[in-house]
């Protein structure tokens, strides 16, 4: 069976690419810390030595539109073109081409339907920055095949937060029941408090730092119960009008849960306070933090997870 090599949850800031491409002398003052933390975050995926990436994100009214809107959709295709004209225009994102992993996509569709998730599918999907941003930050060589999973956090009526957690738990089980010897990383992106197109947009920090602090604590400690107890479709309007993207973080807490469905502490936690949003980066290693054996083979050693956590968790 396939192995869940890493679970990664991240914000997806579309301006990282442009910022990181600037010559150092032209970069804004926050760039150095941001780039350093992203490079450290990238190492957490590299160390897991994945063969395949399941990419959880949300189409921003690019291919999915109000005349035909799925709640959860799996991309099953041999290739995925990526990024759209308005993302090139506004964010300077490059056009990309990613390979698809159709066998895993087919398994997730069949198994997901049989588990009670009525997943939609697409055989020709142009993916957007919710998926390409983490490719750029975590795997810039874009060399691994992907299975995109889109969620609707954007066009109400939306699924309930608990449904995102349930789908996350199911994705873990589905990955681990895939008949393959591949190592799979599941990477998902969402938002903390965020306002776009409203009066609180582009302030000095995210629109609700108190929500951000609580949200980072829930994710870092794997506290699914407290998170579900406080977060509802209604409550997410208060921290900012685009904060429903936080439900993709809740999905990732579900993926990172253990086989009993209990949330787990993240092995790597980092945040960056940008001028209008807080960025946050989390990595879990379900089978322990990867270590190198003397002969170069990977092994998993759960004992090192706590050391890693104490080293990187202090900046949350």
């Amino acid at each position: 069976m396939a192995e869940l090599a890493a679970v990664i949850a991240s914000t997806h800031h579309p301006f990282y690419y442009k910022t990181s491409q600037l010559p150092p002398k032209d970069r804004p003052p926050f760039a150095e810390e941001w780039i350093t933390k992203i490079e450290r975050f990238r190492q957490t995926l590299t160390a897991a030595e994945p063969d395949v990436l399941v990419m959880v994100g949300s189409d921003h009214f690019h291919q999915l539109w109000l005349d035909n809107m799925p709640q959860f959709l799996v991309g099953k295709a041999p290739f995925f073109d990526a990024n759209w004209y308005n993302e090139e225009r506004e964010f300077g994102l490059p056009r990309m081409l990613l390979r698809g992993e159709e066998d895993l996509a087919a398994h997730i569709l069949r198994d997901g339907l049989d588990r009670g998730f009525d997943l939609a599918f697409s055989n020709e999907l142009r993916i957007d920055h919710s998926i390409t941003c983490p490719i750029i930050t975590l795997r810039p060589q874009a060399d691994l095949p992907i299975v995109p999973v889109y969620t609707n956090i954007f066009a109400p009526p939306l699924p309930q937060p608990r449904r995102f957690v349930q789908l996350g738990r199911a994705i873990r089980e589905m990955v681990e029941s895939w008949e393959s010897d591949q190592r799979v990383a599941v990477i998902g992106t969402g938002h903390l408090s965020l306002e776009l197109g409203g009066p609180r947009q582009f302030g000095e920090h995210g629109p609700d730092p108190e929500f951000d602090r609580k949200a980072v604590d829930w994710i870092a400690s794997g506290d699914i119960d407290s998170c579900l107890a406080e977060v509802s479709l209604e409550s997410l309007h208060a921290p900012g009008n685009a904060t429903h993207g936080f439900m993709d973080f809740m999905l990732m807490m579900g993926v990172a849960a253990n086989r009993a469905g209990e949330g787990q502490k993240a092995d790597h936690v980092e945040t960056v306070d940008l001028f209008h949003t807080m960025e946050a980066y989390f990595t879990w290693y379900p089978d322990g933090v990867p270590e190198r054996e003397p002969d170069g083979r990977l092994s998993s050693a759960a004992s090192s997870a706590s050391e890693e956590r104490s080293e990187s968790g202090g900046e949350q």
Binding site: F61, N86, E90, G197, R200, Q201, F202
Partner: peptide, 30 residues
């Protein structure tokens, strides 16, 4: 949908402003 409005209005008007100037004025008007 605020995301659609913002994205289109940035495309039309942001290039006439300082960095972040347009989106801050956009918020101020609301």
């Amino acid at each position: 949908h605020p995301f659609l409005t913002l994205t289109l209005f940035i495309a039309m008007f942001e290039h006439d402003h300082e960095p972040l100037g347009y989106v801050k004025a956009y918020a101020q008007r609301m």
